[in-house]
Computed example of a mutant assay.
Amino acid sequence: MEITGIISALFIGIAIGGLGRLVVPGRQHISLLMTMLVGMAAALVGTFAASLIGVADTAGIDWIELALQVGLAGAGVTALSRRPKVRH
């Protein structure tokens, strides 16, 4: 992978991870690095899933692929978000 591919993957990971955080209600206790990693993983898995169902290569913006990626990022952020423990 070339350096431009790595840099674009980082920016796409930030964007997808950020959108994933936006769709999850409430406050998430997850770092920017973890958000970026979740976003990159969601982008990869979402693209793979979109290619399996045949919607990855459409004319224009691939809205279904984007929805899959953001949904997966939201699920990843929710899974990794830790709740503060309350002591009584």
Rank of each mutant, 00 (worst) to 15 (best):
R87I: 05
T78N: 04
F48W: 15
M40T: 15
G46N: 08
L68N: 10
T4A: 14
P84V: 12
S8Y: 06
A42L: 10
V86I: 05
G76T: 02
L37W: 06
A73N: 07
L32A: 13
S8T: 09
I53R: 06
W63Q: 14
M36Q: 10
G74K: 07
L72G: 02
V45T: 13
E65Q: 11
R21T: 08
L44E: 12
F11P: 00
T47S: 13
I53S: 08
R21P: 01
V77I: 15
G60T: 12
G74N: 10
G54L: 00
H29F: 01
R87E: 09
I53M: 14
G20M: 07
G17A: 09
V86N: 05
L10P: 04
E65S: 10
T47L: 10
I30F: 01
G71C: 08
A67K: 10
L10E: 02
R27D: 00
S51T: 05
T47F: 11
L22H: 03
T35C: 08
T4N: 13
A41I: 13
D57I: 03
L19D: 02
L22I: 03
G26K: 04
I14Y: 15
L37N: 02
S51V: 01
V70W: 04
L44W: 13
A67H: 06
V38I: 15
G20Q: 09
A9M: 13
I14A: 15
M1K: 10
R83Q: 03
T58Y: 14
G76D: 00
S31R: 02
G17M: 10
G76M: 00
F11M: 06
I30L: 09
W63R: 14
G20A: 11
R82P: 01
A59C: 02
A75H: 05
A50G: 12
I14S: 13
L37I: 13
A67F: 14
I16Y: 03
R21N: 08
I61M: 14
G17N: 07
I16P: 03
I3M: 06
M40D: 06
E2L: 08
G71K: 08
A79I: 01
W63A: 14
A75Q: 06
G13A: 04
D62Y: 13
F11C: 06
S51W: 00
R87T: 05
S31H: 00
A43Q: 03
L44F: 12
G17P: 07
P25V: 01
I30A: 01
K85A: 09
L72D: 04
G13D: 07
T78F: 05
G26Q: 01
V45H: 06
A79L: 07
H88T: 12
A75L: 14
I7W: 10
G26T: 02
K85E: 06
G76Q: 02
